[in-house]
C-alpha cells in the first residue's frame, strides 16, 4: 500500500499526556483533520432530566460532567490507514462518532474531506418490512448513491453478500448473518474516499469474514483512507500503518502502529492488566479447560461445576476470533 512518509517519534521517550506525539503529514492532501476536539458527557441522570433543568441548565452541572475527549488534534492524510486504540472507556467510539459526524463536539472541530463509508451500525437504515431490493435502493440512497449507481452495482452487491435467492424477500426473513452480509456489501460498495470501521462491526461467519477482509484490503490498496477503532492487536496490525492511542480522552501517542501498540501494551501491563499476551494465554487455558470438561462428560462422568467455564468471556475485548465470538471481525488467519 502506498502510504505517505511520516515522521514518527519513538514512544520510548513517551511524552506527557498533555503533549501528545504529533505526526505531521505534509506531502499528501488531508482526509481527516481534528483540531482541539473535545466533548463532554453527563455522568448521571443521562435520560431523566427534569423540566426545571430547562430554566437553570447549569445547576449542579460542573460536578456531574466529564470530558470524554479533550484537546484531541491530528491530521490524517489521504490514503493513510489509521487505527485508534485504547482500553474500554477511553474515548475511542466517541472519537469515531465525532469523525463520522454523528456527534457534535463541544470544543474544537473535526473536518472530513469528501464522503465517508461508515461501517458503523451497518444495518441501521434497513427496514425489516421491505424487500432486500427496496432496502438496497433506499439505504444506498441514504448514503448518497444515485439510483443508477445502485442499479449498476446491484448484482455485485447481491453476489458478494451471497443472497441471490432472496432479492425480493422481506429483510426480516433473512438470517442475521445474511443481513449483516447485505449491509456490509452495500456500505463497502459506496465509492467514498474514507472508510470508518467500528470495532463492534460483525460481518458473519469465518468464510465471509475472510472475504470481507479481502475487500477491505482491495479498498485500502485503491488509496482509500481508513479510520479504524479497535483494541484487537491483530486487526490493527493487519490493516493499519499508523496508530493513535487514546487514554483518558487524550491522545497519548500517535505514530507507527507497531510502536504505539508497544506503548499501549506496556501501559496496560503497568496498570495491572495482563495485556494481549496474557489474554491469549488466558483464552488458551480456558479452551483447554472446556475441552477437558467435555471429554469428562463424554466419558460418562459429570463434570465438576467449577471446571465448566460459565462465564464464556464473550465480551472479552479481543475480537480476533476467540471462541465465543465467531461473528466479530478478526484476521482470517485467526481461526482455520
Amino acid at each position: 500500500m502506498d502510504t505517505p512518509s511520516m515522521d514518527t517519534s519513538s514512544p520510548g521517550d513517551a511524552p506527557a499526556p498533555d503533549q501528545p506525539t504529533r505526526v505531521d503529514v505534509v506531502d499528501a492532501p488531508i482526509a481527516i483533520e481534528s483540531h482541539e476536539l473535545g466533548i463532554k458527557f453527563r455522568r448521571n441522570r443521562i435520560r431523566n432530566r427534569r423540566l426545571s433543568d430547562l430554566r437553570r441548565p447549569d445547576r449542579g452541572r460542573a460536578k456531574s460532567e466529564f470530558w470524554a475527549l479533550r484537546n484531541v488534534s491530528f491530521q490524517i492524510a489521504q490514503g493513510e490507514s489509521v487505527g485508534i486504540l485504547g482500553a474500554n472507556g477511553q474515548g475511542k467510539s466517541t472519537l469515531l462518532k465525532l469523525v463520522a459526524g454523528t456527534l457534535i463536539p463541544d470544543e474544537g472541530w473535526v473536518r472530513l474531506v469528501g464522503g465517508v463509508a461508515p461501517l458503523v451500525n451497518i444495518s441501521g437504515g434497513f427496514k425489516a418490512d421491505l424487500t432486500v431490493r427496496d432496502n438496497l435502493h433506499i439505504v444506498g440512497g441514504l448514503h448518497g448513491m444515485l439510483r443508477d449507481e445502485v442499479e449498476e452495482r446491484f448484482d455485485d452487491i447481491i453476489d458478494f453478500a451471497e443472497v441471490g435467492d432472496f432479492v425480493d424477500t422481506p429483510f426480516r426473513h433473512l438470517s442475521s448473518g445474511m443481513r449483516t452480509r447485505v449491509a456490509f456489501s452495500l456500505i463497502t460498495s459506496l465509492n467514498e474516499p474514507t472508510v470508518i470501521i467500528d470495532e463492534t462491526l460483525s460481518v458473519g461467519d469465518q468464510s465471509f469474514k475472510r472475504k470481507a477482509y479481502e475487500r477491505l484490503d482491495t479498498m485500502l490498496a485503491g488509496g482509500k483512507t481508513l479510520f479504524l477503532v479497535s483494541h484487537s492487536e491483530r486487526q490493527l496490525q493487519r490493516l493499519c500503518t499508523r496508530g493513535i492511542y487514546l487514554r483518558k480522552g487524550r491522545v497519548q501517542a500517535d505514530g507507527d502502529i507497531g510502536e504505539v501498540l508497544q506503548q499501549y501494551n506496556s501501559d496496560r501491563e503497568m496498570e495491572g492488566h495482563p495485556g494481549w499476551r496474557g489474554e491469549r494465554k488466558k483464552a488458551r487455558r480456558e479452551r483447554r479447560q472446556r475441552r477437558r470438561a467435555a471429554e469428562r462428560r463424554a466419558a460418562g462422568g459429570l463434570a465438576p461445576v467449577s471446571d465448566v467455564d460459565l462465564d464464556d468471556d464473550d465480551e472479552g475485548d479481543d475480537l480476533t476470533g476467540k471462541p465465543g465470538t465467531p461473528e466479530a471481525i478478526g484476521g482470517p488467519e485467526a481461526r482455520p
Partner: peptide
C-alpha cells in the same frame, strides 16, 4: 436512532 446515528445528514 440507528439510522440517525449512522449518518451525518
Amino acid at each position: 436512532a440507528k439510522l440517525v446515528t449512522s449518518s451525518s445528514l
